[in-house]
């Protein structure tokens, strides 16, 4: 594993407001890294800093071993970027838009032509290649943006809010494409406030709040750690006094009544079989028993509990 992005003590201030307030970040080659957090928590600013589009107030960045401030062209040649709310020249066709950025990237036209055709095929836009982008849906625009990354043969793709505003199917399609490309060795940095959606695709995530990275780690570790390694089991049962039934069961750490006949059991191991056995053994009727995996949303809420989100935003 080699580190492709490294940021140390990154600070960006606008006047007195610190949009990014001391961020340390490392991204390894080939991973899908998620910058997650609410709007205004510093994700986009961090991305612009990585691209060298904004100068940091303090701190150091190294992208592919290069300083994006000193050698912005060399860095930008190897990074693909999909901004939030990606825009294209509406009066040009999809093909022309890609040809323009390919020329800006310094590709000679013959090679660019081949790459553009290939890239449009990859993102399934070859049939509309000669249609004006004005007629494209949001999902198609995002895919066209991804095609731009492909044309450039970027080693790192930075995608800002790639799924926001997409319908579930388009979002899924886009995520599938990202997964496919990540499998081919492209490093992805995704930013999003849709934590649940990112959970399915990111290897590691950094949780942002107020310009800082609160937590960094693999999704599994975070969900396990923050909830204290809890397994949350929900049971729906009748005619059984759960408090009594579960007394003395190993691994169970808590019991909370929910609505109606449902209860929540917190445990530090999968105790479903044992619980079911005891309820039935005590003459209770067991309607359902499910285990809920902790989600990143929960991690976020737990971790930043009590935070005033208006301030963060």
């Amino acid at each position: 594993m080699t580190t492709v992005i490294e940021a140390r003590g990154l600070i960006k201030r606008y006047g007195h407001f610190a949009a990014v307030d001391g961020i340390d970040l490392t991204v390894e080659k080939g991973e899908v890294f998620g910058l997650l957090g609410p709007n205004g928590s510093g994700k986009t600013t961090t991305i612009l800093l990585l691209l060298g589009l904004t100068e940091p107030t303090a701190g150091s960045i190294s992208v592919l071993g290069l300083d994006p401030l000193r050698r912005p062209l060399a860095v930008k040649r190897r990074i693909g970027y999909l901004p939030d709310q990606i825009g294209f020249y509406d009066h040009l066709t999809a093909w022309e838009n890609l040809a323009y950025t390919a020329r800006l990237a310094g590709l000679i036209s013959k090679e660019a032509d081949g790459r553009i055709t290939g890239a449009l095929g990859r993102v399934r836009l070859e049939e509309v290649a000669n249609r004006r982008v004005a007629t494209f849906s949001r999902g198609m625009r995002q895919r066209l943006g991804l095609a731009e990354v492909l044309v450039k043969k970027a080693e790192i793709a930075i995608l800002d809010e790639p799924t926001s505003g997409l319908d579930p199917q388009s979002a899924q399609e886009l995520l599938d494409l990202i997964r496919e490309l990540a499998g081919e060795g492209v490093t992805f940095v995704l930013s999003s406030h849709q934590l649940a959606m990112m959970q399915t695709i990111c290897g590691r995530v950094g949780l942002f709040r107020r310009g800082q990275v609160g937590l960094v780690g693999r999704v599994e570790d975070l969900t396990a750690n923050v909830l204290g390694g809890t397994f949350r089991i929900e049971v729906e049962t009748e005619n059984a006094d759960l408090v009594k039934v579960l007394a003395g069961v190993r691994h169970v750490s808590g019991l909370t009544p929910l609505q109606g006949r449902r209860w929540r059991i917190d445990a530090d191991a999968d105790v479903r079989a044992d619980v079911a056995h005891r309820i039935v053994g005590a003459g209770g009727a067991l309607h359902s028993i499910t285990m809920r995996q902790a989600t990143l949303d929960e991690v976020y809420v737990r971790f930043f509990e009590g935070e005033n989100h208006d301030v963060a935003a």
């Binding site: 612009l48 691209l51 589009l53 912005p72 062209l73 060399a74 930008k76 040649r77 990074i79 693909g80 970027y81 999909l82 901004p83 709310q85 990606i86 825009g87 294209f88 020249y89 509406d90 950025t101 800006l104 990237a105 310094g106 943006g145 731009e148």
Partner: peptide, 12 residues
């Protein structure tokens, strides 16, 4: 048109 950041993320 929101094309500025995309164009400027090209090596120029």
């Amino acid at each position: 048109r929101r094309t500025l950041s995309r164009v400027l993320s090209q090596p120029i």
